[in-house]
Amino acid sequence: MERKAENILNRYLKHIEIELESLTPFARKEIIAEIRSHLVEEWQSFEEQNEENLLQVINNFGDPREIAADYLARSPEEMEPQARASYPPTWLVLVLTIIFWPAGIILAWLSPAWRTRDKAIATLIPVLIPGLAIVFILAIRVIIGAVS
C-alpha cells in the first residue's frame, strides 16, 4: 500500500481506537483488525486504488465516533475495570490509609477498582511494616548484645 494511503487508513483507524479507550487492549485490537480487513477488501475491489476511492471507502464505513459508540453501547463487559464506576478514587484510599488506616481500608474493600490481591496487600501493609520494624530492632539488639 502506498505510504500516503496507509496514513489515511491508519488515521481513520486510530480515531476509532481512541474512542474505544475504555475497552480492554485485546478487544480494541480485535475490533481494529476486523475494520482494517473490511476497508482493505473494499478498497481492493476498485480496479485502481487511489486516495480518492480510499476516502470514499472510509466515508461509506461511517463516522468513527458513531461506530465506537455502537461498540461501547453493546459491550460494557469488555471495559477495563477502572472505566466502570470506580468510587472511591484510588488517591483517596491511599491518603486515608496513611492518615487513618481503618477508613482507608474499608473504602479500599468497597472499591470495584481494586483487585482482591491489592486490597489484601493494602490491609496487611500497616500490620507488616510495624511487625518487621520490631523484628529488625530486636535483631539489632541481639547483635549488639552479642558484640559487647
Partner: peptide
C-alpha cells in the same frame, strides 16, 4: 465474514452505513 455480509445485505436492498454491522457482530 463481515465484508461479505454487508454486500449480501446491500444486494437485498438493506443499506446501512457499513460500519454498523461490526458492533452488531461483536454482540
Amino acid at each position: 465474514y463481515g465484508y461479505e455480509i454487508v454486500k449480501i445485505l446491500q444486494e437485498q436492498g438493506l443499506n446501512t452505513p457499513e460500519g454498523t454491522i461490526y458492533p452488531l457482530l461483536a454482540r
